[in-house]
């Protein structure tokens, strides 16, 4: 039986962008306000999962052509890499550092290695969650 999912699809089209934007916002807000790599990653993942629910896997894959296993692997490498990176500056493993730089439009902005670390966390979360859900659900076709 084919489910009539016009409503779901229509809503998804609008909502996904809100979710994804929220995810990105949460990721960057994390330093001073609620948010961060883990939540940001989760929200992004939930947006993508919603896409998969509303459309089929092939359609989404055409729009979001990432290999999510690789995304997760890159995330893990980023997270561990920033940790190892600190060794080369002769400080203990996983030491984070940051700097405030005044940019033309954004004003006073902070740049820090913790952002890279959080990006690693976020990518791992997105990659792993989507990989798990895909690999379990894709079986249905086969």
């Amino acid at each position: 039986m084919k489910i009539n999912d016009v409503i779901l699809r229509t809503v998804t089209k609008a909502v996904v962008f809100i979710i994804l934007t929220l995810g990105v916002y949460l990721f960057f807000a994390g330093h001073h306000a609620p948010g961060g790599g883990f939540i940001g990653g989760l929200v992004l993942a939930s947006g993508i999962v919603l896409l998969y629910l509303a459309y089929d896997i092939e359609t989404v894959h055409r729009g979001v052509p990432f290999n999510f296993k690789k995304v997760a692997a890159v995330g893990v490498l980023l997270a561990t890499g920033t940790g190892i990176g600190s060794i080369f500056f002769d400080v203990p493993f996983l030491t984070q550092t940051g700097k405030y730089i005044t940019l033309p439009i954004l004003g006073k902005t902070s740049f820090s290695t913790v952002t890279l670390f959080e990006a690693g966390v976020a990518l791992t979360v997105v990659g792993t969650v989507v990989t798990i859900i895909l690999s379990i659900s894709e079986e249905e076709e086969g």
């Binding site: 994390g30 961060g36 790599g37 883990f38 296993k69 997760a72 692997a73 995330g75 893990v76 997270a79 561990t80 940790g83 493993f93 996983l94 984070q96 913790v114 670390f117 959080e118 690693g120 966390v121 791992t124 979360v125 990659g127 792993t128 969650v129 990989t131 798990i132 690999s135 379990i136």
Partner: peptide, 24 residues
């Protein structure tokens, strides 16, 4: 998460990844 206990977070990320690979 990112600084005081970053080591925990890092290992959790790795564990998550390994779990994902396991499911896959």
């Amino acid at each position: 998460l990112g600084d005081f206990r970053a080591f925990d977070t890092m290992l959790e990320v790795v564990v998550l990844f390994i779990a994902g690979l396991g499911v896959y």
